[in-house]
């Protein structure tokens, strides 16, 4: 993943900049509360590889440079909090699930995955699955929404989202 184009970055800054103070660490890093430390590190590196202030040196106006610096400083802050297990507990992370035992043969661990979903949306679906396994329906919905946003054409995805939302209401 390379650096974003300047217009994409500016659009992102407009969207997130004014609200960055109200964003939680998971939103800033674009991950879910169930992700492990390796995923958190990867998420930070991915945000850095696409939006680090160094990559836009001399390509932004003063206001945008300053805004990018502020937002990125908040992303770093989120990373510092989440990679520290004690700080992370304070930020409402679910305790990391115990390492999975081998499931008994015959019963599938999760419901069969829906088909006809764009591959690029699949990692959101997998994360939603993990969240469901951990009993965190709210996080699962979040991931499914991201999946729908990635692949709006998939009826199966929207159905899955609706089903999961119904589950939460119950």
């Amino acid at each position: 993943m390379g650096a974003w184009e300047a217009p994409a970055l500016i659009a992102w800054l407009r969207r997130i900049g004014p609200r960055a103070d109200s964003f939680g660490p998971y939103e800033l890093l674009e991950i879910s509360p169930t992700d492990d430390v390796a995923a958190i590190r990867k998420a930070y590196q991915d945000v850095a590889a696409s939006r680090h202030p160094d990559l836009f040196r001399g390509r932004l106006g003063n206001v945008e440079s300053e805004q990018l610096m502020r937002v990125f400083a908040k992303v770093s802050n989120a990373y510092a909090l989440l990679r520290d297990p004690e700080e992370r507990r304070k930020h409402g992370a679910k305790p990391l699930p115990a390492k999975a035992m081998t499931p008994p043969t015959g019963t599938p661990a999760t419901a069969p995955l829906p088909r006809k979903i764009a591959p690029r949306a699949m990692h959101h679906v997998r994360r939603a699955d993990t969240a469901l396994d951990a009993g965190d329906t709210a996080a699962a919905i979040l991931h499914l929404r991201m999946a729908v946003a990635t692949d709006p054409a998939s009826k199966e995805l929207r159905q899955l989202l609706a089903d999961t939302e119904a589950k939460l209401k119950k």
């Binding site: 930070y44 202030p53 610096m69 990125f72 400083a73 770093s76 802050n77 990373y79 510092a80 520290d84």
Partner: peptide, 11 residues
């Protein structure tokens, strides 16, 4: 700001 915190950082 703790030692070894990633920079740039704001708290």
């Amino acid at each position: 700001i703790e030692k070894n915190a990633p920079i740039p950082i704001e708290r």
